[in-house]
């Protein structure tokens, strides 16, 4: 049994501009100890997917329209709130994008850091503080015993992200969801943060879901990667295979847009057009209007994720029917 299984998850936001279908029919599984990358542009639904399974979608305006999220035999979408709460922060932990705003500015690091322990374990306060200090040392914060008494605004962004990681790992979770953990920190700190997560993963044997818009980050980190576009998964494969044999035009286009991978001196590649308006119904393939391979059927046909190569699935109709090679 996989650790986590999402099937047909659909989440939408009911806004003044209409119903925005942020996550549309997303299914995937995650094994124990596995590292899964989710990539896509902003607004492609990757973060919303994570928040949906954690039950962190603000409702209203958000609404989970359907689907199942089974974690270790428990459906997180329809279990009792109390049961979800006991899993959240204990067995599934999360790191957020912006360490500057994700820590409570009014509370000492200490109290925030050991909060998961106080919530989920029967533990003495002093004992919890000891574990907090150990956790800070683990993430490489010098002088942890003293600095644990600080407030968040006394820390730099990189340090705060370390605190966030220590806080997420303090309960030894089975699954860590990292939502763009490196986006808001300096480039020099990025590698350190990723290394920290990697090391903790080895030690704890936990599964990691890494959400990022940065293909470089994902490629070096994950066992398996899936690409999202307009609320759907369009391609899913082993990392090597995804990067070396792309099976969806969008994945190919994304990789072409990485400046570092292009020969110097050539014009930078950009994907023409704009991501679609998710508040309108999107028949066919959402990428079709921007796709160089698009055919008539692309804008009408039903889109499903199908295996097109061993352990490699794509949602491109034309790839599935072997009409094109991207």
């Amino acid at each position: 049994m996989p650790l986590l299984e999402l099937s047909n998850l659909r989440t939408s936001f009911h806004t003044r501009h209409g119903i925005v279908r942020a996550v549309n029919d997303v299914s995937f599984t995650l094994e124990k100890g596995e590292t899964l990358g989710i990539v896509g542009e902003s607004g492609s639904g990757k973060s919303v997917t994570c928040y949906s399974l954690m039950g962190l979608i603000p409702q209203p305006p958000g609404r989970i329209e359907g689907g199942r999220v089974v974690f270790d035999g428990v459906d997180l979408l329809c279990c009792k709130p109390e049961q979800l709460r006991r899993i959240r922060g204990k067995r599934i932990a999360m790191i957020f994008q912006d360490p500057m705003t994700s820590l409570n500015p009014y509370i000492r690091i200490e109290d925030q850091l050991i909060e998961p322990l106080l919530i989920h374990e029967r533990i003495e306060y002093t004992e919890a503080v000891k574990r907090g200090i150990a956790a800070l040392e683990e993430v490489g914060l010098p002088d942890a015993a003293k600095r644990i008494r600080s407030y968040p605004h006394e820390f730099s962004g990189g340090m705060r992200q370390r605190v966030m990681i220590a806080m997420a790992l303090i309960t030894k979770p089975d699954l860590l969801i990292a939502d763009e953990p490196t986006t808001a920190v300096d480039v020099t700190v990025q590698a350190q943060i990723l290394e920290l997560i990697k090391r903790a993963q080895r030690q704890l044997g936990m599964a990691v879901m890494l959400v990022s818009h940065d293909l470089g980050v994902v490629s070096g980190f994950c066992d398996r990667v899936q690409v999202m576009y307009a609320g759907r998964i369009v391609e899913s494969a082993k990392t090597d295979s995804l990067f070396h044999q792309p099976q969806h035009p969008y994945n190919r286009a994304l990789q072409n847009s990485i400046p570092a991978l292009q020969p110097k001196g050539t014009a930078l590649y950009t994907i023409p057009g704009m991501p679609p308006d998710l508040s309108r119904p999107l028949p066919g393939c959402a990428f079709a209007p921007r796709c160089e391979f698009a055919a008539d059927k692309c804008s009408t046909g039903e889109i499903v994720l199908k295996e097109v190569a061993p352990d490699h699935r794509s949602a491109c109709l034309r790839v599935q029917q072997a009409e094109i090679k991207v």
Partner: peptide, 10 residues
Amino acid sequence: TAAPQPATLR
């Protein structure tokens, strides 16, 4: 990033 921004998607 959780909330979609329809204005930019339009």
